[in-house]
Write a protein that binds this DNA or RNA. Structure first.
Length: 483
RNA sequence: GGCGCAUUCGUCUAGUGGCUUAGGACGCCGCCCUCUCAAGGCGGAGAUCACGGGUUCGAAUCCCGUAUGCGCUACCA
């Protein structure tokens, strides 16, 4: 088998789409699995869609996700340049070859004529709107004349009628088209830039791409690409068209129905491991029940043959659960780093929490959170005293004899000398016995007094983490505030 | 409209002719554990495998048709 070389070829429209991330991931996995090369190529042939900083952003998102490429605009390689806007001469040379062979031709038709043509075809209810090959019949002299007079032109692919265009797709197997349904696609635009169709074929060939792994939206234009490979006499790469990522209403995943940019998910607190894991499973499965993967495990397990054919709804609820799973499997040290940066970005940044303290919070909350920021939002009481108390819990747990009981607890705690978690528990049980009440009777109001909430880690963990002074203060202020 | 692709629980999926009373995960419900909430364990509801025809002793799995959905139909990618 020849060398495996695959590419991710996004156009720089501003950000990395999660669908693009999935495409990039599958390319990456396929390359790594087969000891191949993973190449980034920027398809910036549409000058009207140029966005400042988009390429840098794209690369940053890919790096964040951990998808490193072997060749690309910022890492170089032997097949560059990797920006299509820097390869204009190449495309021009190749298209000239096509013109000489009669597989492409100059077209001087104005946009107005094209528009009129389309409208006319529509009115006649022709099965499909296609260019009418009007300029194909121009004589050599006519063409030279127009060229000399600087008349604006494009170059079109000369599609021969009545041909079967058949190609194999790794995922969809055999696909066939009738050339009568293929339009004489523009190859070079009037601004001298190539269209995607020409540029991707020329580049994939020159960059020795072995497998074209891309979204299903390209399936319909693949016959044009196949025709180009054949016209040049080049070997066709293997094609693999990936199923689309869908909105909940099953339309193609779009901005209108939620976040689509990788950076949005990053900013919302999704772990890269979770996003990668999730997106990998949208359209691929190893054939077993395993659903928890790290990137390196995906490399081993992945195969193009196991990719599904139908689109997959991007379900954030499942992403959330995967994020929680990945947090639970993350080391406390890594979580600490993330929590600290979360604190830096909050109004808590002026406080100074020791790593030991934060580590204890992480340990106690790890199985209760889905996002790193919940190490703060779900347990604010670890950072600041409760500003208010959960009403429902007051009604349920704060009875007329509660203040007295709390006083007793506070007294008992105050006698403890740098207490451990167990010391608190011992002292607590003793008080409960003396008062002749069940543990639960005391624990719930204590929890309320200390945290203001009714949910959270074990009571004695909370006491230990907060420390003696703090809990004594809180018990007292609860007694005052809750009468 | 034309062309193409697809179609298994709400969602992601397993399944490649007999192992399937269609398995798992998320979500939902219940029970256990328990100081609460989670986590964990156990269990439940949830898919006549889009529909209709074939082929076969036997089909979710193969073939044909229909329906539906989606994609493409630009001098955008």
């Amino acid at each position: 088998m020849k060398n495996i070389r695959v590419r991710f070829a996004p156009s720089p429209t501003g950000y990395l789409h999660v669908g693009g991330l999935r495409t990039a991931l599958y390319n990456y996995l396929f390359a790594r699995k087969n000891n191949g090369k993973f190449i980034l190529r920027i398809e910036d042939t549409d000058r009207s869609r140029y966005v400042e900083g988009a390429v840098e952003n794209l690369i940053a998102s890919l790096k964040w996700a951990g998808l490193t490429f072997d060749e690309g605009p910022d890492v170089g390689g032997n097949f560059g340049p990797y920006m299509q806007s820097q390869r204009l001469e190449t495309y021009k040379n190749y298209v000239n070859e096509l013109i000489n062979k009669g597989d492409a031709y100059y077209c001087f038709c104005t946009p107005e004529r094209l528009k009129a043509l389309r409208e006319e075809q529509e009115k006649q209810k022709l099965p499909q709107a296609k260019y009418d090959k009007h300029c194909l019949s121009l004589s050599k002299n006519e063409i030279e004349e127009k060229l000399k007079n600087n008349i604006s032109y494009v170059v079109r692919l000369n599609v021969r009628p009545n041909q079967k265009i058949i190609f194999d797709d790794v995922i969809r197997e055999r696909v066939d088209f009738d050339s009568n349904n293929v339009d004489d696609q523009v190859l070079i635009k009037s601004d001298g830039f190539p269209t995607y169709h020409l540029a991707n074929v020329v580049d994939d060939h020159l960059m020795e791409i072995s497998h074209v792994i891309r979204g299903e939206e390209w399936l319909s234009s693949t016959p044009k690409h196949v025709l180009l490979y054949d016209a040049f006499g080049w070997e066709r790469p293997r094609f693999a068209h990936l199923p689309l990522l869908l909105n909940p209403d099953k339309s193609k995943l779009s901005k209108r129905q939620g976040d689509v940019a990788v950076e949005d998910y990053r900013d919302k607190g999704y772990l890269k491991d979770a996003l990668i894991n999730f997106v990998a499973l949208l359209g691929w499965n190893a054939g077993d029940d395993k659903e928890f993967y790290y990137l390196n495990e995906l490399v081993n397990a992945f195969s193009l043959e196991q990719v599904n054919k139908s689109g997959a709804v991007f379900d954030v609820v499942k992403l959330n659960s995967l994020n929680a799973l990945h947090i639970r499997n993350q080391s406390n040290e890594k979580l600490l780093t993330m929590l600290k940066s979360e604190i830096e970005n909050s109004e808590l940044r002026i406080e100074n929490y020791s790593d030991e303290r934060l580590l204890l919070i992480i340990e106690s909350m790890k199985e209760r959170v889905s996002f790193v920021k919940e190490f703060i939002t779900e347990c604010r009481y670890f950072y600041t005293p409760p500003a208010e108390y959960e009403q429902k819990s007051i009604e349920k747990n704060w009875k007329s004899d509660t203040p007295n009981q709390m006083k007793k607890l506070a007294e008992a705690f105050s006698l403890l000398e740098s207490p451990s978690k167990e010391d608190y528990e011992l002292a607590f049980t003793k008080v409960a016995e003396e008062l002749n009440v069940g543990n639960g009777k005391l624990i719930h109001p204590l929890r309320l007094a200390v945290s203001g909430q009714s949910t959270g880690p074990g009571m004695f963990d909370i006491l230990y983490i907060l420390g003696k002074n703090e809990i004594l203060k809180r018990i007292n202020s609860a007694i005052n505030k809750l009468k």
